[in-house]
Amino acid sequence: MNKVVMDGEEIERSITRIAYEILEKNRGADALIVIGIRTGGVFLASRLRDKISAIEKREIPFGILDVTFYRDDVTKMDNKPKPGRTDIPFSIDGKKVVLVDDVLFTGRTIRAAMDALIDFGRPKLIQLAVLVDRGHRELPIWPDYTGLDLPSSLWENVKVQLFERTGKDQVVIEEEG
C-alpha cells in the first residue's frame, strides 16, 4: 500500500520556501555553500542551490558528500554499502554549510555527515535542510529547515522520489509487508 504524501508541486513549493528561509536566516548568501548527502540529498541540494542562485543572481558553491566511510555500522555488515565519491572541490573553512538530505530519520546519517565535514575543514556553521522529517530520532539532531513534518510508524518506509531518478517528483509512504 503506497500513499502519496507530497506531489511534485508541493515539493517544488517546499524547496522554494526553504531557499527563502535559508537566505532569511543567514541574511543573504554570503559564505553560503550547499552540500548534498549521497544519495538521496544530492538532487534536492542541487535544486536548492539552483533556487538560491537564481534568487541571489550568483553561483552558490555546491558539493556532494558520501558518508559511507563515517557510518557507525559498516564494519558490522556483511554486505557492505558501495561508497560513492565525495566531491567538495573548495574549502569549507569559515563557510556557512547547508547540509541537505531527503528524509531525516534516526539522525545517524547526519551525525556521520557532520563528522565527515569537519574532516574537510572548519565551517563557521552547519545547518540542516530536509524535505521530510519522519521522527524517531536516535541522536539529538534537529533540522533547521523542513519541507514536511511527517509522523510515521517504524513499519513504514518514507520514499522521496525525484524526477532526476524516477521521472516523477513525489513523496510516498510504503507500508512493509
Binding site: F69, T75, K80, K82, P83, T86, A116, D119, F120
Partner: peptide, 27 residues
C-alpha cells in the same frame, strides 16, 4: 568490478588535506 568501483571512491580520500576516515576504527 565491486573492488574497482569501491576503490574509485576511496581514491578521493587520499587527495584530501586530512587523508583519514574513521571507517575501520578499532580494526
Amino acid at each position: 568490478l565491486l573492488i574497482l568501483d569501491t576503490a574509485d571512491s576511496f581514491a578521493e580520500v587520499s587527495t584530501r588535506d586530512i587523508k583519514k576516515v574513521p571507517t575501520l576504527r578499532g580494526k
